[in-house]
């Protein structure tokens, strides 16, 4: 099914009008999802066959679906929420149009799935994105960024708890409580991997937490036996370029391939 406006014309995307982008949803999606797609200038289909332009897979976030969405012919996977596309970042659609890989999952799904492994394998097997010898470094940074986005972004769990085994008990307890909170667990984590040309790729990890100040965090030093606080410094040492967007809710990491 192709989403059409009430005038019967193809909807014009607010992201990029040049190339059609189709969300493929098994069963075709609900009426609400159809209306959301129409408003965003996206097409909706139930199968990928015979659809021109770029494709994103949308559905329940199980391992098989996410793996399928991160491989050809798709440019990514969008977890369908109870409110359809509500809360999904427009960046995911831009990424799919730019030939990259987009992933939008609820926090609970990121926690439950082998998210890093799924994205890492997808990057390694995508000819536009494969980072060659730098792949291990991309993995390290992506893992750190996902971990920060889940724990300190969406679940807002303070890092200072993990200083000893007693603090770790409390940390576990707070993590469990927050994962059981439906509002926090449904906040999205989005990973966008974009080819930059000239042998670079950017990996963007977004959360829906309160955001953080990159410069302030990087100015903190950590001891060599520190049990916390290493992640960002590590990312900064590895990346060719590091910055934040969206008020500190999106970490933009650029790597030489």
């Amino acid at each position: 099914m192709v989403a059409r406006t009430s005038s019967g014309l193809d909807a014009v995307s607010i992201c990029s009008p040049q190339r059609p982008l189709t969300l493929v949803c098994q069963g075709g999606g609900t009426e609400d999802v159809g209306a959301q797609c129409a408003a965003l200038g996206l097409r909706l289909a139930s199968i990928p066959e015979g659809v021109d332009g770029d494709l994103l897979l949308m559905g329940n976030a199980d391992e098989a679906n996410v793996r399928a969405g991160l491989a050809s012919p798709y440019g990514g996977f969008i977890e369908l929420g109870v409110e359809g596309l509500l809360g999904v970042g427009l960046r995911c659609f831009e990424t799919a149009r730019a030939g990259g890989l987009a992933l939008s999952l609820k926090t609970s799904s990121v926690y439950a799935l082998s998210t890093l492994e799924l994205v890492s394998q997808a990057i390694r097997t995508n000819p536009l994105l494969a980072a060659g010898e730098a792949a291990d470094f991309v993995d390290i940074c992506l893992g750190e960024a996902i971990s920060n986005a889940v724990m300190h972004g969406n679940l807002d769990v303070p890092a200072h708890l993990r200083i000893n085994s007693k603090g770790f008990q409390l940390f576990r307890q707070v993590m469990q409580e927050r994962l059981a909170d439906p509002v926090l667990a449904c906040r999205r984590i989005e990973i966008n991997v974009v080819p930059r040309g000239n042998g670079y790729i950017s990996v963007l990890v977004s959360d829906q937490g309160r955001g953080f100040d990159l410069a302030e965090q990087l100015s903190r030093t950590v001891d060599c036996d520190a049990k916390r606080g290493r992640g960002l410094g590590l990312i900064n040492r590895i990346c060719s370029s590091l910055l934040t967007e969206d008020g500190g809710r999106t970490l933009v990491m650029t790597f030489a391939k």
Binding site: L116, E117, D139, I140, G143, E144, S147, M151, R162, N164, S165, F168, D225, A226, K227, R228, R230, G231, L234
Partner: peptide
């Protein structure tokens, strides 16, 4: 072990301390 991040490393430091 297929992957370790800084959180996992922190857990090893806690185990070592114990």
């Amino acid at each position: 072990l297929s992957h370790i991040d800084s959180v996992g490393l922190g857990l090893l430091y806690i185990a070592r301390e114990d």
